[in-house]
Amino acid sequence: MSRRRVQPLVWLAFSAGGVAAAVLLPSLALLFGLAFPLGWLDPPDHQHLLAVVGHPVTFVVLLGTFVLLLVHSAHRFRYTLYDGLQIKKKRTVAVLCYGAAVVGSGATLAVLWAAA
């Protein structure tokens, strides 16, 4: 696919990932990042979490969400390096950022598949 065809798709994924990061990520981060480990709330028992993670719907939702979040993050970080830090090696930056997102998406699939 030519660059002109790919670019709108990347922006679309960026937007979808941005919505996911704004709507879904705060609760997951607050609960599993702070509230459960620090004992503000009783952590869910293992059996229940395993059932949730193993459900096909959770698998699909988490896979889609995590991949979108990674593309969103890579796309935004790319422009942070261009504009914020004034790094002008455009091709290298783009390859590294999107490359990391692709590797991360593969890892996401492997981890979710193994746990499901």
Partner: peptide, 9 residues
């Protein structure tokens, strides 16, 4: 955002 994806994985 990328950190939380890694953390949740």
């Amino acid at each position: 955002v990328a950190w939380f994806v890694v953390y949740l994985l």
